[in-house]
Design a protein around this nucleic acid. Structure first.
Lengths: 232, 232
DNA sequence: TAGTGGTCTAGACCACTAG
DNA sequence: TAGTGGTCTAGACCACTAG
């Protein structure tokens, strides 16, 4: 424990937060004070404090000092892609249609498209062995410059489809999880009754300028859906 | 753009990753090389590199160098608590029962309990105005030392219930989302038909030593459930 | 103006890697 | 052994805050 000087700073402050001596929004001793209290140099004190800032325990305000954060209570890290709800490794992703369509008003709004801009619609079926699990639709603004390459279509992960064009580090995502029942078309594709419970996962992809670059909607048969998230 | 020297390092490396010049798992130039290439001091180069490490673009291996990360594709940050699926601000959390029970085998395993250890079961009803949205059960190992304080029961957020005993920064959580149908008891509480589509969210809470400290299961009526997650 | 955090340097020494 | 990242110091100067 605390082999290094900067770790001593981390543990010193962390212990006082854990014990409740420092409460959320309290001002903690300044860098200079901590140097004097511990005999540790300023750069090293700063390194320790930066660890606590990165861990979400402290925030710094220039000219004022360091303060204790409010704990983030409901934060979870979720790993999701279209096949992550399937536990066996026998899943398959089958492309069942690629069309160029004229988007309706809703899709035009979602993708922030100019008038008359067409959209690529990719329809895929996700299965686990012979069991049909989910029906997946991706909408991507049509561009003659960057045609969809067939190989990309089988990538189960949505951002992966853009790997040729964009650095994956620059793609921002949003996701919405809702519950519903299968509609007529989806029920047919999944060979299930209409009104069967379903989970609908929508994904919104944006480029580095917050411009929409894709929309995906994946409808899972409820009984095959499972998702985990963690928070450490 | 790039007012500071360390930001020049960040942009220099980031641009080469974005352009594909540096690919995942590539070794990038050493700190010394970067100093020579840019005329920037080593501490400042290190600060720039640490930004990229924190952003998940690089990882460092002592004695070898810095490498480009594989992009984390399916990672989402999810904010969840028991009432976050409700959009109006008229939600209420009503405690409908607190019991000391003898846990069954499954719960004993989940909470890693010694034999004959009892458990507090807290049953709550979550509503939005007069609409019953969710039924919520929390299981907490019973301890005479730390009695449940009534006020804590109304905290909608699970970790919040432990705020008196534990620093919230030390609680680790896992969460599982599944789809099901209402069972008999839950249907009765929620005044809905049995077999109505439902979302089941389980939460597992652990202390700093990875010891289980609580288990929660919240059953939402599907039609009222909505959840969002982001990834920037 | 005094105190705070933010940037930056030059240099020392250490631990680890791989030929 | 040469090269790499990791820790640490002492000191300089800057930008911001608040009396």
């Amino acid at each position: 424990m605390a082999e290094h000087s900067y770790q001593k700073i981390v543990e010193l402050i962390r212990a006082k937060i854990d014990s409740g001596e420092y409460r959320p929004n309290d001002n903690i001793p300044s860098e200079k004070m901590l140097c004097e209290m511990t005999g540790i140099g300023r750069s090293t004190v700063r390194k320790g404090l930066s660890v606590l800032v990165n861990d979400g325990l402290l925030y710094a305000v220039q000219g004022k000092g360091y303060y204790v954060c409010e704990p983030k209570k409901g934060e979870f890290l979720l790993y999701f892609n279209e096949t992550s709800a399937i536990e066996t490794s026998a899943e398959s992703v089958k492309v069942i249609g690629v069309d160029i369509i004229s988007p309706d008003a809703e899709m035009t709004a979602i993708l922030d498209l100019p008038p008359n801009r067409q959209t690529v619609l990719i329809k895929r079926l996700i299965s686990d062995r012979d069991t049909r699990i989910a029906y997946d639709c991706k909408y991507i603004p049509y561009s003659a410059k960057s045609p969809i390459i067939e190989q990309e279509l089988y990538k189960s992960d949505f951002p992966q489809m853009f790997a040729k064009e964009k650095s994956l580090f620059d793609i921002k995502k949003k996701m919405r999880i809702t519950v519903g029942e299968l509609d007529g078309q989806t029920a047919k594709v999944l060979r299930a009754d209409e009104h069967t419970p379903a989970i609908i996962i929508e994904q919104f992809l944006y480029d580095e300028n917050a411009q929409p670059i894709g929309y995906g909607i994946t409808t899972f048969l409820g009984k095959y859906f499972k998702l985990s998230a963690i928070c450490e």
